[in-house]
Write a protein that binds this DNA or RNA. Structure first.
Length: 761
RNA sequence: GGGCCGGUGGUCUAGCGGCUAUGACGCCGCCCUUACGAGGCGGAGGUCGGGGGUUCGAGUCCCCCCCGGCCCA
């Protein structure tokens, strides 16, 4: 049934976006999933929730632009490709390596697209975007050229976080921390001009050649006497002893050696203390000539060697093994180094204040999720290094004049590959030389591409007319884990390009966890794949679970039990619809009976709750409200109550019509209310009973004239029903058996329906 | 170490100072038969994360701590 619906939607293009519609436009900045590896169920649910947003907006009267894109740039695919073919990127021809990456991406992409389609996601997957397409990359480069012209780009030589394995610099956001066992080596330093010794503990003995100072905490009385003195390292260098609060008296001996560079703190201390760095680690992760006899060794080798040497010479007091919080590469988990390199930077520090103002105008769902971004803005302290020494990414569109060496940029609008192409000019604008140009070999950080998604999707740089209608996207839906990267960078970049907030609405979701509450990771082996669940329960059941399981914004645990429960609810809905479909729907509204007014009042209540949930893009209330209404109220009480009347058993035609009319009215309302969450079954029913598609309908409205006193009485009817059923059971009677019962005075209006239902004499 | 969010029976959830703490899913009995492999009736299951305090009275307000998730240092 679901597959059948999906085919119909595709054939009739149900969700086609018409930019010239007279409805207000609403555009969604769909997260482009990364095309590597297989999707787990949490990702599938995330995208179906985003789909619910799109469907909600359609039913609220918007013309919704819901594009789809696939992220194909960057490290992960390079790593996967290296693994699959057992090759090393830098030892492989660049062109050829790119081809292998593309092959891998095409496969992964198809896997994702098939899941997206199976979920019934109403995005435009026919014309999907790819972040590595010429179209997208040309826009990335155009916005870079724009930023360059506006003075946001600069190149600087400074310490960078560097992954020796991936041979690239990393942004702060790409650094992870891992507790790793490390040896803490206690080294003896001599105090200059005396025979006294002090002991310094370090996890990085191989950086001893780069050691430029030793610090202690100003509150640490043990070392006050060292103030102003110098100490001699085991390698014979005399270096100053300084006070700095960074030194933790509890760690090691309380003395810390400062080297260029062991970690980010070293970088800061070198600056603060005015020390001259001595660089000993090269870009390939090996020590250089500054390391003296250790030159040419890798960091690991140098560490072993220096420990051995120093032990032999008696400089090692002792060695402890500790758990140390080590910065590692987010992708390959290799411990990171700090290496000074020349890199391009995009300014952001100067703009933080302007971005903070957006916190007041952009609406976050849930409201408190804005804290994620607010906190990050507070802690941004350096500009964004945007160049990378990798292959599979957008090239930096710069050539350098072979004569004067100055950078020259091409005009925006085209996709450039400077490492293999000639520039679109032959004379240097700086020196006039025609000596030719050297193409830039570096590429961009992939967030440079993804951070302009709301521009690319909406036509910026490739369809001006389209873009003029849409502007930047209206809503960004995404997970909370990438606020400081994707969300932050998008606001930054769009601000630089347009001078406006990228979005009006930002929707932040929690994470789907496994049954024990852990995130799904390959390494944990706890990944739940979606296909078996689709086959057993269908996409709607999975979607319903995704909506009804937890409030928006909080993490939720995946439970097959609950998905099964959702499936049962869908069955119930199906049968309710089947029952109602046997009755003809009366044309005009007949005069309604108390029972009818009661259920319509209940319906009002449910519509109110559901719509207020939809307004917040929170599907918890809508899903649960519909379920409770159908399952606990409408089916067991109202339908039972009016069954006889609907069939027309010994009642007049008007009363029968009232029941039939109400049944259909409620069904129509409920189907529309549930359509964003469970699009397949609702449309299937809608089409077979009423014709047309439910997905082009609007949400049902509250009709206040139905907020009557029967609403309250109806609750009593439900209690009375229970009482009758219980009494019959106690007396060992069958449900159909006639019974003598007194109907409470206040339920008189319902008397006729009640008598029929319970066969009351 | 800091920030944010959260912590109510196995799971999700109502509750926003006041009766013996909701409801759902799941579980266990019994019953029934239908628009429905569904339903009806009953049942087991909770120190409301812990400890203090405010109050006549606290999941509900305040403080401290613990745990989980995410992020940062």
């Amino acid at each position: 049934m679901e597959l059948e619906m999906q085919k119909v939607w595709e054939e009739e293009d149900t969700y086609r976006f018409n930019p010239d519609s007279d409805r207000p436009l609403f555009s969604i900045d769909t997260p482009p999933p990364y095309a590597s590896g297989k999707w787990h169920i949490a990702a599938a649910i995330h995208y179906s929730q985003i789909d619910m947003i799109a469907r909600t907006q359609r039913m609220r009267g918007y013309e919704v632009y819901f594009p789809f894109g696939v992220d194909r740039n960057g490290l992960p695919v390079e790593v996967e490709t290296e693994k699959r073919y057992e090759i090393k990127m830098f030892e492989y021809p660049r062109e050829e390596f790119l081809r292998l990456c593309r092959e891998f991406l095409d496969e992964a992409e198809q896997d994702i697209l098939s899941i997206v389609k199976r979920l019934g996601i109403s995005a435009d997957t026919k014309n999907y975007f790819q972040t590595d397409s010429e179209k997208w990359r040309a826009v990335t480069q155009a916005t870079f050229i724009d930023a360059w012209n506006k003075g946001y780009i600069y190149e600087d030589y400074r310490p960078n976080i560097y992954c020796p394995r991936c041979r690239t610099t990393l942004a702060d956001a790409e650094v992870e921390y891992k507790e790793l066992p490390t040896r803490l080596v206690y080294l003896k330093f001599k105090v200059e001009g005396s025979e006294e010794e002090v002991v310094v503990a370090t996890t990085r003995p191989e950086l001893l050649p780069a050691c430029k100072a030793v610090i202690y905490n100003p509150d640490d009385e043990r070392y006050k006497w060292l103030r102003g003195k110098r100490v001699v390292t085991p390698l014979g260098d005399a270096i100053p002893v300084m006070e700095h609060p960074y030194a933790d008296p509890e760690f090691g001996t309380g003395l810390v050696m400062i080297c260029s560079y062991g970690d980010k703190m070293d970088v800061q201390l070198f600056r603060e203390l005015g020390l001259e760095p001595k660089i000993v680690v090269n870009e390939d992760g090996a020590l250089n000539e500054n390391a003296g006899e250790y030159a040419g060794l890798t960091i690991q080798e140098a560490r072993e060697r220096i420990i051995r040497d120093l032990e032999r010479k008696g400089f090692v007091e002792r060695i402890e093994t500790i758990m140390h919080r080590t910065p590692v590469c987010w992708r390959c988990k290799t411990p990171l180094e700090i290496v000074p390199m020349r890199e391009y930077y995009l300014k952001q520090v100067d703009l933080i204040h302007e971005l903070e103002e957006y916190l007041d105008v952009v609406r976050f769902y849930p409201e408190w999720a804005s804290n994620y971004w607010r906190d990050w803005l507070k802690s941004v302290s350096s500009d964004w290094p945007i160049s990378r020494r990798r292959y599979y990414a957008t090239e930096i569109p710069v050539w350098y004049c072979k004569s004067c060496g100055k950078p020259v940029l091409p005009p925006p609008g085209k996709y450039y590959q400077p490492w293999k192409e000639d520039p679109p000019y032959d004379k240097c604008p700086h020196c006039g030389s025609t000596a030719g140009f050297e193409g830039e070999k570096r590429v961009f950080d992939t967030w440079m591409d993804s951070s302009i998604s709301p521009l690319v999707y909406n036509g910026f740089g490739w369809d001006d007319e389209f873009f003029s209608k849409l502007g930047s996207s209206d809503l960004r839906p995404q997970g909370k884990d990438i606020v400081r990267t994707w969300l932050h960078y998008t606001f930054l970049r769009v601000h630089q390009v347009l001078g406006k907030p990228a979005f009006k609405h930002v929707w932040i979701s929690g994470m789907g966890l496994d049954a024990k509450g852990r995130a799904m990771h390959k390494s944990l082996g706890n990944i739940i794949y979606p296909w078996p669940l689709f086959e057993k329960y269908g996409a709607d059941a999975v979607r319903f679970f995704g909506a009804a399981e937890a409030h928006h914004g909080s993490d939720f645990r995946i439970s097959e039990r609950k998905i099964e429960g959702a499936y049962k609810f869908l069955q119930k809905l199906w049968n309710v619809a089947r029952f109602i479909s046997q009755f003809e729907e009366p044309k005009g509204m007949p005069e309604l009976e108390p029972s009818d007014l009661w259920i319509l009042g209940e319906l009002n209540k449910s519509i109110r709750r559901a719509l207020s949930g939809y307004e917040r893009f929170d599907f918890f209330d809508p899903a649960n409200e519909v379920r409770i209404f159908i399952w606990d109220v409408f089916a067991p009480h109202y339908i039972e109550l009016v069954k006889g009347r609907a069939y027309g058993d010994c009642v007049d035609e008007g009363k029968s019509a009232a029941a039939r009319w109400t049944l259909h009215y409620v069904l129509r309302a409920v189907l529309r209310l549930a359509a964003p969450v469970i699009p397949h079954i609702t449309d299937y029913i809608w089409r077979s009973i009423y014709g047309g598609t439910v997905h082009r309908e609007l949400f049902p409205e509250v009709r206040e004239e139905w907020d009557t006193e029967y609403l309250e009485l109806g609750r009593k009817v439900m209690e009375f029903n229970s009482l009758v059923w219980k009494t019959k059971k106690e007396r060992g009677m069958r449900m159909k058996d006639p019974i003598e019962m007194k109907i409470p005075e206040d339920l008189k209006p319902f008397e006729e329906d009640l008598r029929k239902l319970h066969n009351i004499k």
